Each structure stands twice: as structure tokens, then as C-alpha cells.
Simulated assay, not measured.
Amino acid sequence: MEQTTIFLSQATAKAYTEGILSEIKLEIVKDEKDGGNKVEGYITIKTDDINYTTYNITAKATTKAGKPNKSYENLVAFMERAHSIAEVGEEEATKVRVNGQVNPWTSFNQMGAKTHKVGYKTGFVSIISELKDPRSIFEVECFVQSVDDEFDKETQVPTGRAILHTLLPIYNNGIEPLDIVVPQEYAMACKQLFTQPGCQSAHIVGNIGNTKEEKKTTVEYQIGGAVTKTQTKNVNELILTHAGTMEQQYELETIQRAIAEYDLVLESKKKRAMESNKAGGNKTVGGTTIGASAAAGHRNFGF
């Protein structure tokens, strides 16, 4: 099939979750810009015994046209009716369904250290009577920069999985880096597909994995014997289940311009964060959109 070229525009970046409301932290506050009310906070949804997905939420009471905002009305009603596992236990907790967005972002602390994370956001939550298919999934259209083997961070031994380093087109001709994990059974196929000329624009579907990983370390003491310490960290992964190339390909020159522009944005945000530190501030400058090339040593295709 003949492929055509498309220019950069906001891409599909869908997130969907069905499960039990584990935690709810929503409140009505005053908007600092216009003084009106808005709902903001987050909810966390349990989809199985180990997976939990958190959605950040913000919705103003009125639209830009000054009309009542249906998202705000939905969330206010949801706040009145919803009960979390933390409040009433799992049996009585509210069952929910959310259609939201994948939301990668980059921030800097006062020392200029960069943090890149993937979050999820929504402005609408549905209460359902029963769970039909509890799960958390995503669907994105993106530009594949490189496909690399995954290595264990401690042992540096290959895990068998691969990592798709992609760029997610967003609003205002922007981009955000987005890494997607490829299971071992699909790793070779992804390498073969996305390294072909004209096959860098991808349509990917998969599971959202948000789990807690525990690491136990035992230290021997001369006096008192051994002590075992447990460290827990959250692991947030987008795990590919289906992938293919888009019929329309992103225009390569536009991607390259977006990378250059957002490298400049990145430097500006970093500078602001460090200047805040010098001025005695105590905050993280976040929400940065950035398009950076893959790290040194990665294979880049098309650049």
C-alpha cells in the first residue's frame, strides 16, 4: 500500500482503565487566573492484585466561552457519590471506567537535574455497576527514533525485551519522548519492522503496567546478627501488545525541527529551575515538552 506523508499534529494518545476506585484525592479550589472554581487532584484505580493506575484531573467550572463545563459537573457529582477502597474496603468501593490520555512530561529541580515520567490525565469519570473487563490499556501514534535491547540496570545483562524510543506529537507542533517496552516474543519483529525506510511512524496498542517492585537487602553485623531491609519503588511501563506502521508517515523534516525547538525549550526550563534555586526558591519547574535524540550508543534511524 502506498504511504503518504503527514505534517506534525497532535497524535492519538489514549488511555483507558476499568477497575475499582482505590484512592480519591479531589477538591474544589479557586483558579488563580480567573478566580472561578475548578476540580483538581487525582484518582487511583485498581485493575488487579498488583496493578494500579493514577489519573491526574483538572476541570474548570466554565468553558472558555463562559458556559457550564460538563467535565466539571461530572466530577462534582462523582466526588459526591464515589467511595474508595481506602474509605470503605474493596467490596464496597466504587467501580469506575475512565477514558483519558497518556501524558508524558519532563521537569527539572533547582540543581538542574532532569526527571522524565509518564502520567495519565482525564476530565471525566464514569461510575459503573459491575466490572466487565478490568484492565488498563493505551493506544498511541508516534514516531520511532530507535529500537534498543533492554538491559538490567544492576547486572547490565540483557533482559530479552526491547525498548521503543519514540516521540509523541502533541499540540502546537510539539513532541514528547515516550518509551514503550516490547516483550521478548515481539522484540525481533519490532526491530525488523521499524528499522525499514518509511516505517518509523507507528500505531501501538498495549497494557499500562503500574506495579510496586520490592528489593530486599540483607546486611550482616558483628553484633546483633543480620538485618534485612526492604526497598519499594513504583514501576510504570507501557507494554506493547500490538504494533504496526501508520498508512500516513510523519514528515521527517518537521520532526527534526520539533526536536531542535524543544531542545531549546528544555534548556530554558532548566535555566529557570536553576535561577529559582539561586533566588532561594523551592520548586520544580515541570511540564516541559522536549524532543531529544536517543542517548549516546543507541541506533537512530532517519536522523
Rank of each mutant, 00 (worst) to 15 (best):
L240A: 00
N207C: 08
I239H: 02
A260K: 02
K216D: 13
I259Q: 13
A258H: 00
Y221D: 00
N234Q: 06
I223P: 11
E213Q: 12
T217F: 14
A258G: 10
K215M: 13
T195P: 09
K229F: 15
K233Q: 10
E261M: 03
G198R: 13
A243E: 13
K215Y: 14
T218H: 10
I259Y: 14
E251G: 01
R257L: 07
N210Q: 09
V219F: 13
I255M: 11
G224A: 02
I255L: 02
G209F: 03
Y250S: 07
T195M: 14
V219L: 01
A226N: 06
K212T: 01
Y262A: 12
E220V: 09
T217N: 14
N207P: 01
Y221I: 02
G225M: 04
I208F: 01
Y250I: 15
E253T: 11
E214P: 02
T228G: 00
L238D: 00
E237M: 05
I239P: 03
R257M: 04
N236C: 05
E253A: 02
Q222M: 01
I208D: 08
L240M: 15
N207Q: 04
K212F: 07
N207S: 11
T232D: 05
A258F: 10
E261L: 08
M246Y: 02
T217P: 11
A226E: 06
T254D: 07
G224H: 03
E237Y: 03
L252C: 04
E213V: 15
I208C: 03
N236D: 07
E251Q: 09
Y250A: 12
Y250Q: 02
T232F: 07
S201V: 04
T230V: 09
T217L: 11
T218Q: 07
T230F: 09
Q256T: 07
G225Q: 02
E251I: 04
L264K: 07
K216H: 15
K216C: 12
E220T: 08
I208E: 08
K216E: 15
L193C: 03
T241P: 07
A202G: 03
E220L: 05
E247W: 01
G206S: 07
G198I: 08
D263R: 14
G224C: 07
Q222A: 02
L264A: 11
Q248S: 14
T211I: 09
L240R: 06
A202V: 07
E251A: 08
V205S: 12
G198E: 11
N236A: 12
G206T: 09
T232M: 05
G244R: 15
K229N: 12
E213T: 15
I208V: 08
Q222F: 06
T254N: 04
A258T: 08
T254E: 05
T218P: 03
T211V: 09
T217I: 14
E237C: 00
E214W: 01
E213K: 12
N236E: 10
T230M: 13
H242Y: 15
N234G: 11
N236S: 05
